[in-house]
Amino acid sequence: MEILVTIVIVAIIMAVAVWLFIAKQGDADFEFMVNERTEFIVIAETEKTATFSCEVAFVNKGSQDGTIMDAFPRHLLPYEQFDEVEVNSRMELATALRTDNYFEAVIIPKGTGGTVIVTVTFTAKTGNIKDALQNLYDLSVDMPIDIVYQIVARTPWYIHKARMIMTCDEINRAMQAKGTAKRED
């Protein structure tokens, strides 16, 4: 009986020790700092399209290295709200530029981070993009963009979203800076 009790006590002590070790070790903890992103600017424009981009910093503030397996922007502009443009968006690491909308998995050591570039292209369904985006502004339509990212670290993979809003004011400011939007009276 004493042996059995001893074995149980040793097993409990070992389990607690392992649990404490894991708790102390922690894990990766990612944050996309959407509230500190840069303002969208126009990077390309044609009669039918306008392309905007901004930079969003991210950080692994956890105690372990972590891997961003995949990340992409999910723009949300339903036609019920605004039906004059088609939207495309993509995201890339500032340190690994590519235009294929493929996010190469990357290890982010603990305490470090990086920057992603979010690119959004509006294409006018009819007419020109300048008028379409002016209408978007007149209707006061803001477009949410979720940065969706898949993380794997010490724990099983998970997907998080960080939401930012691409406001119509911001779009209008960017178009004005480019000299292609109607100015407010």
Binding site: D65, V152, A153, R154, W157
Partner: peptide
């Protein structure tokens, strides 16, 4: 150690 491939659950 976390640099190793076996440091992830997968």
């Amino acid at each position: 150690p976390q640099k190793g491939s076996l440091s992830s659950v997968y």
